[in-house]
Design a protein around this nucleic acid. Structure first.
Length: 358
DNA sequence: AACCCGGGGCG
DNA sequence: CGCCCAGGGTT
C-alpha cells in the first residue's frame, strides 16, 4: 500500500471516531495535573503555550509559577519594563519569546481584552499556527487542531506518513489527519490528549504501544521497525564553532557590563564586552579554563579574561569606549543574564574577590 | 525553504 | 555525542 492508501484509510470516519473516543477516555484518566489546567484562564493558558515552545513541561512548570508571581495579570505584564520581563525569563532560552510576549501583552492591554478567536490570536506577536490553535481550542473551545512536535510524531506513526513532517507535503498530510482526528465537541481536551499521548506513551525512543489507546487503529503499533523510523524529519545542521571572549574589567566592587544588541544571540541580555580594555589595565590572567556552551546553532567556546583598572576613572573611560555600563556585581545580578554567564557566576565572583584583595 | 534563536535531559 | 522538546520570525 502506498502513502496515499494509508492516508485514505486514516481519514476514514469510522476509524477516526474509534481512535478519537479511545484517546479521550485515556486522557480523562491519565492527564497530568499541570498548573495551568487547575484554574484555567486565557492569561495562564497563553503564558504556558509561549513558555512551552521548544521547552519541556517539567522545565516550564516552575517558571510558569514564578512568572505569574511576578506578573499576576496581563495588565501587570503590559506595564512592566522589557528588562523586568527578560529577567523573569532568565534561563529559559529563546529570549525573543519573552519580548514578543511583552509586546502582545501591551496590545491586549491596549485593546482592553483578550482576542476571542483563533484568527485574532494568530495576529499577535509570538503567536504562530500551533500556539493560536492551542489557545483557541483550550481557552475558547474553538474547533481547530493544534499540531506541535508531539502531534507530528503521533499522527505520522498512527497514519504511516513517510514524508518529512517539516516539509510542505508532510506538514499538509499531518494537518489533514490531525483535522480528521479532531474531536470537535471537545477540541481543547482533544488537542491536549494527543500531545499528552506523545509526551507519555508515543515517545520518541521507547514508544509504549502495549498501553496505547490508539494501538487498535494505529498503522505502526507494535511494529518497532515502523515507529522507530517515524516521524521523518529533515536533517539538521550541526552547531557552528564560535570562539567567544568576554572581558571582565573591574575596579573595587565595580564591573563593566554591556546590554547586547536588539537582534542576534541573547538579544537585550546583559553580558561582558567582547573587546579588551586598554593596556593600562592589569591582566588578572585566565583564572579558569574556557567553557563550552551549546546553543541550537552554535558551539561556543567561551574564554573569560579578568582585568583590573588602575582607578575608577579609567574603568569608566573604557566603558564609554565600548558603550558599556559600570555597576556593582550585585546590580549585575539583578539583570537578565544568559546561562553561560550564570554558570560562571561563582568563578566570576572569585575574579572580583581576587581584584578586591589585589 | 532555509536560517536564526537557548537550554536542558536522556539514551 | 545526537536527538528532542506544547515553535515563531525573518529572509
Amino acid at each position: 500500500m502506498n502513502d496515499q492508501g494509508f492516508l485514505q484509510n486514516s481519514l476514514d470516519p469510522k476509524r477516526t471516531t474509534v481512535a478519537q473516543k479511545a484517546l479521550r477516555t485515556w486522557y480523562l484518566g491519565h492527564a497530568r495535573d499541570l498548573p495551568w489546567r487547575s484554574e484555567p484562564s486565557l492569561y495562564g493558558t497563553w503564558l504556558s503555550e509561549i513558555m512551552l515552545q521548544q521547552t519541556r513541561v517539567e522545565t516550564g512548570v516552575p517558571k510558569w509559577h514564578a512568572f505569574r508571581e511576578a506578573f499576576p495579570s496581563v495588565a501587570d505584564l503590559a506595564r512592566a519594563t522589557e528588562d523586568e520581563v527578560l529577567k523573569a525569563w532568565e534561563g529559559l532560552g529563546y529570549y525573543r519569546r519573552a519580548r514578543l510576549l511583552h509586546r502582545a501583552a501591551k496590545a491586549i492591554h491596549e485593546a482592553g481584552d483578550f482576542p476571542s478567536t483563533h484568527a485574532e490570536w494568530l495576529a499577535l506577536p509570538g503567536i504562530g499556527p500551533y500556539t493560536a490553535a492551542a489557545i483557541a481550542s483550550i481557552g475558547l473551545g474553538e474547533a481547530v487542531a493544534a499540531v506541535d512536535g508531539n502531534v507530528q510524531r503521533v499522527v505520522a506513526r498512527w497514519a504511516g506518513i513517510r514524508q518529512a513532517v517539516d516539509s510542505k507535503d508532510g506538514a499538509r498530510a499531518v494537518g489533514l489527519v490531525a483535522d480528521a482526528l479532531l474531536d470537535t465537541n471537545h477540541p481543547g481536551d482533544h488537542n491536549q490528549a494527543v500531545m499528552e499521548l506523545g509526551a507519555l506513551v508515543c515517545t520518541p525512543r521507547a514508544a509504549q504501544c502495549g498501553t496505547c489507546p490508539l494501538a487498535a487503529t494505529c498503522t505502526s503499533a507494535g511494529r518497532e521497525e515502523a515507529w522507530t523510523n517515524l516521524p521523518v524529519k529533515q536533517p539538521k545542521k550541526k552547531p557552528v564553532p564560535w570562539d567567544l571572549d568576554w572581558h571582565v574589567a573591574t575596579c573595587g566592587d565595580l564591573v563593566v557590563v554591556v546590554q547586547r544588541p536588539d537582534s542576534g544571540v541573547w538579544a537585550k541580555m546583559w553580558t561582558f564586552p567582547e573587546g579588551p580594555p586598554s593596556n593600562r589595565f592589569a591582566a588578572l590572567g585566565l583564572l579558569f579554563d574556557p567553557v563550552t556552551h551549546i546553543l541550537s546553532h552554535r558551539r561556543i567556546t567561551a574564554s573569560f579574561h579578568g582585568w583590573q583598572a588602575p582607578d575608577e576613572a579609567s574603568l569608566r573611560s573604557y566603558a564609554d569606549e565600548v558603550a558599556a555600563y559600570v555597576m556593582t556585581w550585585e546590580e549585575l545580578g539583578a539583570l537578565a543574564r544568559p546561562r553561560l554567564l550564570t554558570k560562571m557566576w561563582e568563578e566570576l565572583s572569585d575574579v572580583w574577590t581576587a581584584s578586591e584583595r589585589a
